[in-house]
Amino acid sequence: MDITEQIEQLEADLQELGSLLEKAERKRVQELLKQEQKKVEKELTTKRQQKEQRTKREADPSASSKAGYTVKITSYAWDQSEKFVKIYLNLNNVHKIPLENVETDFTERSLSVLVKDLDGKNHQITILNLLHPIDGKDSYKKIKTDMVLIMCKKQTTKKWECLTAVEKQSKEKDKPNVDGTADPSDGLMTMLKKIYEDGDDEMKRTINKAWSESQEKKIKGEGMMDL
């Protein structure tokens, strides 16, 4: 059923609902009919808008490329279930454009989304270096009111700490080194700095005193401060 037929069916539904509403005498029945009437009216408005946009594109196929330009989607939210990683893209009125205008591409470690001709612009996001592999053939999109939901199928059911490997590396870089693989003094200084910043005046005086004594020992060749 093409969009013109869908509109005709919705118009017929709306007309019949109106007739039933005129005949209904019970208040509860009237309320139910009014609710359904509003739902049909909303769906009909959306379909008419889609048809209008399609007619414009067919009349001038180059119109969208002339008027539109591509902007990057810079913000998103993500969540996960046992089997999927879910990415939420908030885009006003995205539910009003044709479904085929929202294109997705998945690889084992990346995804991209291109939303074409939304309010005169194209919207695009690419996320690379996913933390774990996904199954592209079982990943898909869902269009909701003012939102695109991307469902990335996990290859394994393990819980993701973050969305990308880059984020994980950044978090690990910010952690104090306590495993002895780097210069021990770097980890020591990081911990001392945190203790100093979080401590009270007495703690800060104690650390300052210990540091001063340590520096004096180093100058005299007595080594690092003894903790």
Rank of each mutant, 00 (worst) to 15 (best):
M1S: 14
M1H: 12
E8V: 07
Q9L: 08
L10D: 06
L10T: 02
E11L: 08
D13F: 08
Q15I: 05
E16W: 03
G18S: 03
E22R: 13
E22V: 09
K23D: 05
A24D: 01
R28F: 03
E31L: 12
L33R: 03
K34I: 06
Q35H: 11
E36F: 02
Q37C: 01
K38I: 05
K42H: 11
K42P: 03
T45C: 01
T45G: 05
T46K: 13
T46A: 04
R48P: 02
K51H: 10
Q53M: 06
T55G: 01
T55C: 00
T55R: 14
R57P: 06
E58I: 13
A59D: 09
A59Y: 09
D60M: 13
D60I: 06
S64P: 04
A67L: 07
Y69I: 05
V71C: 08
K72H: 09
I73C: 00
Y76D: 00
A77T: 11
D79Q: 12
Q80G: 11
E82W: 13
V85Q: 02
I87Q: 04
I87N: 04
N90V: 12
N93P: 00
N93L: 00
H95C: 01
E103C: 07
D105K: 15
F106G: 11
F106S: 13
T107W: 08
R109K: 15
R109T: 02
S110E: 06
S112L: 05
V113A: 04
V113K: 04
K116I: 03
K116S: 08
D119I: 04
D119S: 00
G120F: 00
H123M: 08
T126W: 02
I127F: 03
N129V: 02
L130D: 02
L131Q: 15
L131H: 06
P133L: 07
I134W: 02
D135T: 15
G136A: 15
D138V: 10
Y140P: 05
K142E: 08
I143C: 02
I143T: 09
K144Q: 08
T145Q: 12
T145A: 14
D146L: 11
D146M: 07
V148I: 13
V148H: 03
L149R: 07
C152I: 13
C152L: 15
K154R: 12
K154H: 12
T156F: 01
T156N: 11
K159L: 13
E167D: 11
Q169N: 02
K171G: 00
E172R: 12
E172G: 10
D174Y: 00
K175T: 09
K175E: 12
P176G: 10
T181P: 01
P184L: 03
G187N: 05
L192K: 11
K193A: 10
K193E: 08
I195H: 04
E197V: 13
K204T: 09
R205A: 10
R205Q: 14
T206L: 15
I207S: 12
N208W: 11
N208Q: 07
A210L: 15
W211E: 05
S212W: 04
S212A: 15
S214H: 07
K217L: 00
M225Y: 14
M225N: 09
